[in-house]
Design a binder for these strands. Structure first.
Lengths: 146, 146
DNA sequence: TTTGAATAGTTGCATAACTAACTATATGCC
DNA sequence: GGCATATAGTTAGTTATGCAACTATTCAAA
């Protein structure tokens, strides 16, 4: 039995990612209390656009670890909310470039503050070296299954 | 700035739990390849029943970190698949006790093997002390937000 | 003993996920 | 040029999640 064998009783919470789910739920709740009517999933798409505006849907798939239909619908819903705009690429007509609107640019600082605050709350009492180690393990897990 | 402040570029993957999502997806794929037609979420409910049969829906909520409507519907679907059976409690008529069927008892060893194998694959190259530390961090995060 | 609060579970509505199958455009080889 | 293949994105169907509102049963205090 390899020394990294998981004990059965610990399987479930690892698989469901209860911790990250809890963070996402809390952040969602904080958004709602502040009157910000977007979902965490929509926010996570905006997050990548704040880093770099005008990404293609395909690039959003990669960066947000989602498949194409998921991004199609998230962008659909963000477009309905007038938070992004699809612009067909001139170089390649298959490609939609997704751009922020003025409304969504305004959302950035308020929601990023809230997200940082929520994460700090979540990580209260956890040392930064433990956080680093934890992130490294999660990345390794992700890479192992790629 | 507290020493456990998250850097912005790392927010997203933590919040979405990409690692645990990847494990769940892989296990789902393995089930499918083996001709086992249940979802990971359904499996996770069975998992708790294998540990202790005859739990109430409320107890399933707590153990699987889900809310009541989610458990109601998972049990609905498991019942359609004839993998569990609701039995009203004699002591308290509000309570449904959820019992495994012969079919789902048979699923246990095959799927647990698959789950352990998938986790070992996911954790390849990660030391057991790192796994312990990682689990401790995730538990702490969960508790911080409770 | 009755009334009000708490608990167990269900239902409806909106959003999101995965798979598979589809359209449209681009690329590359003959 | 023309056809096969790859790539970008959409659509359809099923399942799952979160929230809010609901019913039914139990419990506890006036």
């Amino acid at each position: 039995m390899p020394n990294n064998q998981f004990k059965r009783g610990e399987l479930y919470s690892f698989i469901t990612g209860m911790a990250s789910t809890a963070v996402a739920r809390r952040l969602q709740k904080n958004f709602k209390q502040a009157g910000i009517e977007i979902t965490i999933e929509q926010w996570s798409v905006l997050y990548h656009l704040w880093k770099q505006d005008g990404l293609s849907q395909q690039e959003l798939c990669k960066q947000s670890f989602r498949d194409k239909p998921s991004i199609t619908r998230l962008v659909d819903n963000l477009e309905k909310l007038k938070l992004v705009k699809r612009v067909p690429s001139k170089d390649d007509r298959r490609i939609n470039l997704v751009y922020l609107t003025e409304d969504s640019k305004k959302l950035q600082y308020e929601t990023m503050d809230m997200a940082n605050q929520t994460l700090n709350e979540a990580l209260d009492g956890v040392s930064s070296s433990d956080i680093e180690m934890c992130k490294a393990v999660l990345q390794k897990v992700y890479d192992n299954l790629k």
